[in-house]
Each structure stands twice: as structure tokens, then as C-alpha cells.
């Protein structure tokens, strides 16, 4: 599948060590109610409309090959082919297209001028989304190319991918001994071959609640997390660092926190980044004409402090994004 990418950003300081550039892949298997990037849900291209920027010049109408626009901001989705002609003609950036495909070479060209900043700061590239693991082949090839340039790679994932890939083995020529370390028979998934760090997003530990708030169960996610943690421990995979969004009354309940704390400790992970909830995403929903999700109150400082306290009591070190101690070694 050719991936669509909705944004490439430089100078990101909160998603892995050092100064990083982020590549946001479009498409996500989950639908978390609090999601702040609704433009990342669908894998296909989408057109967003920011009414406050529209100057009413009608250039979008005039240039639509399908005559799908009858008034600026009013588009017939059934006729729209997402050719982005309107986006390209909009002078004021009121129309924004999400989801373009890039070749590996062009991504490299965009990133290359930033290399010196990564190198000096110990930073690199972070794949995010959406869900980058939807495009395993592309990630594998892209990270291979970037690795050749000596760039460190981080991947952020919601963890919802096929756990089977931990068991798929390449056919070995006869006589070559499989070097997979014992005692497990896990193998490193191909798309994580050149990835140095996985930021693993966890949300709700309870399967039913996960279905309720994220639209899908979490069995695969939990399996993948413990598999990755095991791989990392035996040195057969990238480092895993969990992150959890702190959503008032949803993820910061005592049950959820203690459930995750147990699970993480059992998997041998004793650190966690807490991402405080903000509601900047609601504006993006309006631009994309998505009926607004449930209103979630802003996170209070006390609530965050309480969350930290509960997790710390379990022996989990909590960090805010960008302030992680990446040198922390596993027990």
C-alpha cells in the first residue's frame, strides 16, 4: 500500500530524544474519542476547510474539474475525487489537503538539510501518525535508507498490528543456523529492523473500556507490547518506551492506572511518559466537518499530579513528553 502522509514537521522536541523531524502517516485502526488529530483517521486523502481564512474568491469552484464545489466550503463528497485541484488553487490556505504520497527519495531530500541538527543533538526522525505500522513495507525501506545516512529512527505506534509478524521467519538457506536468541522464538519484525526506539501508546487496560473509547479491543496491543518488551530485553529489538495520554476520568482512573502499572512491571518496563490532554483537536474536527466528539474537560494540574502519584507508588517513573531520561536502563 502506498502510504499517504499528512505532515512533515521539523524541530520536534517531544517525541524522542534530541531535535527530531516527524513524519505523520495517515490512517489509523483506532478511533479514540479524545483524538487530537482527526485528519489522521482515514488512510485516503481528505480536504479540510478553514472558514475563517476563506476570502470568497471562488477560485476553488472555478478550478474544480468535477464541478463538485457549489460554494466555497460546500463540496459534494460523492463527486469529489480528492484531486486537490481546489487546494492548489486556494490562495489563502483556507483549503488544506491532507494525505499526499511521497517517494522515499523526496522524503530524504526534505529531511537531509536537517541532518546536522539531529546529529549534534542526538535526535533523528520519528514516524508517527495515524499509525505508521499500516505501511510496514514502506517503513522498512524508508528506515533502511535513512539508516544508511546514519540517522536514528523512532517509531510511534498505537500497537494495533498483527502480532503474527513476531513469528514470521525468513526462509533460511539450508545449513545456516538461525541466530534467534533463546529462550523465546520471537523474531524482530521487518519494519522495526532499523528502528532504534518505539514509543508505544497505551490507553485503557480493560478490553471492554478500550472498545468503548477507542473503537476496538486491546488484546493485540497488549500482546505486541509484551512481545516488544521481551525482544528489547534480550537485545533482539528496539527499545520500547510506553506513553499514555492522560484523559480526565477516562485513562486516569485508579483501576486503569493500577492495571497498566501491573502490566508494565510484569513486562519489565518501569517507565512511562504521560501526555496531558489538551483540546486543540476540536478545531481540526470542525475543519474536517466531523461532528464534534464528546466534550472532555481540560485536564487539571491536580489530576495530573494524582496520576503521577499513583504510578510512582507502583514504582513506575513518570515523565512528561520531551523530558524523558533516555539513559534510564532496564532493571
Amino acid at each position: 500500500m502506498t502510504p499517504s502522509i499528512f505532515s512533515i514537521q521539523h524541530f520536534c522536541l517531544q517525541d524522542g530524544p534530541g531535535i527530531r523531524s516527524m513524519i505523520f502517516f495517515k490512517g489509523c485502526p483506532l478511533r479514540c474519542t479524545w483524538c487530537q488529530n482527526p485528519e489522521s483517521w482515514y488512510a485516503g486523502p481528505e480536504v479540510a476547510f478553514k472558514s475563517h481564512l476563506c476570502i470568497g474568491c471562488n477560485l476553488c469552484m472555478d478550478n474544480c474539474p468535477e464541478q463538485a464545489i457549489f460554494r466555497p466550503g460546500h463540496r459534494d463528497p460523492s463527486r469529489c475525487t480528492r484531486c486537490f485541484s481546489c487546494v492548489d488553487h486556494c490562495p489563502s490556505r483556507a483549503l488544506e489537503g491532507f494525505g499526499k504520497s511521497y517517494s522515499i527519495a523526496s522524503i530524504r531530500d526534505i529531511l537531509r538539510p536537517e541532518y546536522p541538527f539531529y546529529r549534534d543533538s542526538g535526535g533523528g526522525i520519528t514516524f508517527s501518525g495515524g499509525e505508521p505500522s499500516l505501511y510496514m513495507n514502506f517503513i522498512e525501506r524508508l528506515s533502511g535508507v535513512l539508516k544508511e545516512d546514519g540517522i536514528s529512527i523512532t517509531l510511534e505506534t498505537c500497537g494495533d498490528f498483527d502480532p503474527g509478524i513476531f513469528y514470521k521467519r525468513k526462509k533460511m538457506p539450508i545449513g545456516v543456523i538461525d541466530d534467534m536468541p533463546e529462550p523465546t522464538n520471537l523474531c524482530r519484525p521487518g519494519f522495526l529492523k532499523d528502528v532504534d526506539l518505539v514509543l508505544f501508546d497505551i490507553k485503557l487496560v480493560d478490553d471492554l473500556r478500550h472498545r468503548q473509547f477507542c473503537g476496538k479491543g486491546n488484546t493485540r496491543i497488549q500482546t505486541n507490547l509484551s512481545n516488544l518488551a521481551t525482544l528489547a530485553k534480550i537485545g533482539g529489538g528496539p527499545r520500547v518506551w510506553p506513553r499514555m495520554p492522560v484523559i480526565p476520568n477516562i485513562t486516569d482512573t485508579v483501576d486503569n492506572l493500577s492495571g497498566w502499572a501491573d502490566y508494565l512491571l510484569k513486562s519489565g518496563v518501569f517507565y512511562l511518559t504521560l501526555v496531558p490532554y489538551h483540546n486543540l483537536g476540536s478545531l481540526k474536527r470542525i475543519w474536517l466537518n466531523i461532528t464534534d466528539g464528546p466534550v472532555i474537560p481540560a485536564l487539571k494540574t491536580e489530576e495530573l499530579e494524582k496520576t503521577v502519584q499513583i504510578l510512582t507508588d507502583y514504582g513506575i517513573s513518570c515523565f512528561s513528553p520531551g523530558e524523558e531520561d533516555w539513559q534510564l536502563s532496564d532493571r
Binding site: F11, L13, G18, P116, G322
Partner: peptide, 22 residues
């Protein structure tokens, strides 16, 4: 908020060093 703390210090320092290197 973007450049607070130790991580912010490291990022800014790196950014400056790279700029002057170039």
C-alpha cells in the same frame, strides 16, 4: 514551554552549535 528544562537546554544548545557550524 517549548524549550524549558534540561531537554530544552540541550536542544537549544545543539541548534546554536549547528547554526554556527554552518
Amino acid at each position: 514551554k517549548t524549550v524549558q528544562g534540561k531537554a530544552g537546554n540541550q536542544a537549544l544548545s545543539s541548534m546554536l552549535r549547528t547554526y554556527f557550524d554552518q
